[in-house]
Design a protein around this nucleic acid. Structure first.
Length: 755
DNA sequence: GCATTCCAAGTTTTT
DNA sequence: CTTGGAATGC
């Protein structure tokens, strides 16, 4: 796009202002579907057209997906010129900066990135060393504890100080051990990428100025999701020239759990008083009914910027409620809708199924597989998380960074080289007492005599050889070299199982990916080229899993609400709308968590362009306890009645659900008008006041003496006495009509009556 | 030391 | 239902 004016075509006034304002701080409050991406890409094109050199522009996003999409769209607008714009995620931008200048803060440039898997393995070792009770301190807890500390930018010492009130807590010590290990291994974790970049820029004015000078124009997408380090980073980069444009929507802040601080957007105007604020409230994506529903939910949140999207698209269809007996039927009903709409000319690519947790995808995927409908599960089992891929990457990491101890541990005995737990402990002991990396310790240990020495020598020899080859082989060839020489691939070949075959293919796929990647970075030194590839593999879940093109009909997309942010689909099924599912059961206690769940619902709803289905089932599987009656999500009540159609909420009492027919092969009546399928309730039902509100407790602690409860046959009563624990909880209940009875919670379908 | 087999436990969201 | 770890047999 050559002329600046062309970049403004077809934009509304606010969008135009956002595009044209390239100097000084700019806050774009962009509601869902308000053309935000379009504004951002046009803005870049506009700057280029105005003569801003591409390399002076930095655009930061959160996900690789968003970065990729933006890069592509800028390129469409501005041609190859655009390739010099740095469009990147926070994390990969930081890797870039750190690979350049990390020596200033005492690391070596070939540092390794530990991902969450490496973290876990490391923590497991540390926990074992410290004789931690794994039951009381599961690895996941340790990891999230450390992550939380890092997100708050507390180092081990600060953290320990802040925790002095709780002596006996092993976390500070583990954190210290963790940090020591990282430092020795010349490794950094995800949070370090951000924190260390901030540290580097803070402590070294010369470096800071260099970056400020280089990136004269900075843009940040999804600003509402920035955490403290990201906020500081942005300020450090833009602090001098102040050409900083941030785009965000407080209603779409869904990453508080990993440290996103919504205040960053709320306070932007204070940080940059001369800011120009643009509000994009016109929605180009969804029908009015969809917007009303989304707004109905999110407007229950306190502390949000008051705004409401509008559209002139028209009301469109009502939202369609689907109520099924269980998750299988729920999936089948969704499937039938998809089939029906396909019959009306929709393509598979028009549909998205959005759920709260990955685990919830299963029945839907199964249904699609059975019906042979092409579909893609976004972000499920990731390529780079497959064992063989991680193994190969560990080899490569070790080649580039011989001090990467986690990589060493991962592959020292893969494939088996006769080095068991004992040998590894010996090697670790040497490393610890000598203060050398594990790989060097293995070399020393292997020079001695005894069991396993040969294996250690082989391993060290392999790594050495591979290191020599880095310069002569192409990256893809190097992967092949390692796969063969390590015996990894040969061993898989001897297995002759389909699984091994699959792994071999995955390694082939890795070779291919490396080669493809190498093409795009031909101007780099081979080592940097390999390093760049590994960085990308460490920071990216999956490549190009985006559900676009290729298949003519496209594919149905299945994804979590988190992953759906920024995407749009003509038809969306928001599934699993039950208490404990959406909102997630871990987020039902605290008001802040609940607000985040509400924003998540808002994100999910606003993905829909034309039709939005909300589905739920009456029963759901609760881990230990089999099927439990599932209450409808409270968020459904927050949707205005007039926009909601389809299955009606059950008029019949909640307790009758437990006796409903199992999902029959023949489905109930028509999908939309049909009342909920009726079930003959066998036991004589107790009378139930129409306005009675109850819930089926998952937690037995809900049953306390004095609590009012509802029983299917005995009706209302009050608990007199509670005996037993957990599975064998036994209640004495005085029923209003049937006298006092003793019941096991396990068998009685009891519900707690809300006041 | 290694492989197989069985048993148990654990299920949020992502870079 | 899946995965990870422990126990057992070679």
């Amino acid at each position: 796009m050559v002329r600046p004016q062309a970049c403004l075509e077809g934009m509304n006034d606010e969008q135009r202002t956002a595009v044209e304002t390239i100097d000084g701080p700019l806050l774009i409050l962009a509601g869902a579907g308000s053309g935000k991406t379009r504004v951002l890409t046009r803005r870049v094109a506009y700057m280029l057209a105005k003569g801003v050199p591409a390399w002076q522009i930095l655009a930061v996003t959160f996900t690789n997906k968003a970065a990729g999409e933006m890069r592509a769209r800028v390129r469409e607008l501005s041609g190859p010129d655009a390739d010099r714009v740095l469009v990147s995620t926070f994390h990969s931008a930081c890797v870039r900066f750190l690979r350049q200048d990390i020596e200033s803060i005492g690391y070596k440039r070939n540092f390794t990135i530990y991902d969450s898997d490496d973290q876990s393995r490391l923590l497991k070792n540390l926990a074992k060393e410290a004789n931690l009770d794994i039951k009381a301190y599961p690895i996941s807890k340790l990891r999230s504890g450390i992550d939380q500390a890092k997100v708050r930018m507390q180092d081990a010492a600060t953290f320990a100080a802040s925790r002095q009130s709780s002596p006996g807590d092993p976390l500070p010590k583990i954190y210290r051990g963790y940090e020591e290990h990282l430092k020795v291994a010349n490794a950094v974790d995800f949070n370090d990428l951000l924190n260390l970049t901030v540290k580097m820029l803070q402590e070294h004015p010369d470096i800071r100025e260099r970056y400020q000078d280089r990136f004269r124009y900075v843009m940040v997408d999804e600003y509402q999701d920035t955490n403290r380090a990201q906020y500081l980073l942005v300020k450090l980069l833009a602090g001098e020239h102040r050409n900083l444009a941030v785009v965000g929507d407080d209603d779409q802040s869904i990453y508080a759990f990993r440290g996103a601080d919504i205040r960053n957007i709320l306070d932007f105007e204070r940080d940059f008083p001369e800011v120009k604020t643009v509000r994009l409230e016109r929605n180009y994506r969804s029908t009015q009914n969809i917007l009303k529903a989304a707004h109905g939910v999110v407007s229950n949140n306190r502390g949000r910027m008051d705004k409401e999207l509008w559209t002139d698209i028209g009301s469109g269809d009502q939202l369609q409620m689907i109520i099924a007996q269980d998750d299988m039927e729920e999936a089948n009903r969704v499937l039938r809708e998809i089939q029906k709409l396909r019959g009306e000319g929709r393509r598979c690519a028009d549909f998205a199924i959005i759920y709260r947790t990955n685990a919830a995808s299963r029945p839907f995927e199964q249904a699609l597989v059975r019906a042979r409908i092409p579909h893609v599960l976004v972000g499920a089992r990731k390529f780079y998380e497959r064992r063989e891929i991680r193994d190969m990457l560990a080899y490569l990491k070790l080649v580039l960074n011989p001090t990467d101890n986690m990589a060493f541990l991962r592959v020292i005995n893969v494939p088996a080289r006769g080095l068991g737990a004992k040998a590894i402990r010996d090697i670790q002991d040497i490393a610890n007492s000598e203060g050398i990396p594990y790989l060097a310790a293995a070399q020393r240990w292997g020079a001695g005599k005894g069991r396993g020495r040969k294996g250690a020598k082989e391993f060290c020899g392999l790594i050495d050889k591979a290191r020599e080859q880095v310069l002569t082989l192409l990256p893809g060839e190097l992967v092949g070299f390692v796969a063969e020489e390590s015996g990894y691939a040969p061993r898989l070949r001897t297995e002759e199982t389909p699984e091994a075959q699959g792994r071999l293919e995955n390694i082939q796929e890795l070779v291919r990916a490396v080669d493809e990647d190498a093409v795009s970075s031909e101007d780099l030194h081979p080592i940097d080229r390999l390093q760049a590839f590994i960085d990308r593999a460490s920071l990216t879940g999956q490549d190009s899993d985006l559900p676009d093109d290729i298949v003519d009909e496209g594919q149905v997309t299945l994804l979590t609400a988190h992953l759906a942010k920024g995407l749009e689909y003509p038809v969306v099924f928001c599934v699993g709308m039950v208490e404990g599912g959406f909102p997630h059961h871990r987020s039902r206690e605290r008001e802040e968590d609940l607000e985040e769940e509400r924003r998540l619902v808002y994100v999910a709803f606003t993905r829909a362009m034309e039709r939005l289905y909300l589905t739920r089932s009456r029963r759901r599987l609760v881990f230990g306890r089999g099927f439990q009656p599932a209450e409808p999500s409270r968020f459904l009540d927050e949707i205005p009645d007039e926009v909601l159609g389809g299955d009606k909420a059950p008029e019949r009492p909640a307790w009758a659900r437990a006796f409903s027919n199992p999902p029959s092969s023949g489905f109930s009546t028509s999908q939309f008008s049909g009342s909920a399928s009726r079930s003959p309730s066998r036991p004589t039902p107790a009378e139930r006041p129409a306005d009675l509100r109850t819930f089926a407790p998952e937690d037995p602690a809900e049953f306390q003496p004095g609590t009012r409860v509802m029983h299917p046959t005995f009706g209302l009563g009050a608990i007199l006495k509670v005996d037993g624990i957990n599975q064998n909880l036994k209640l004495q209940i005085r029923f209003d009509r049937h006298g006092t009875k003793s019941l096991y919670v396990r068998f009685a379908k009891l519900e707690v009556v809300l006041p």
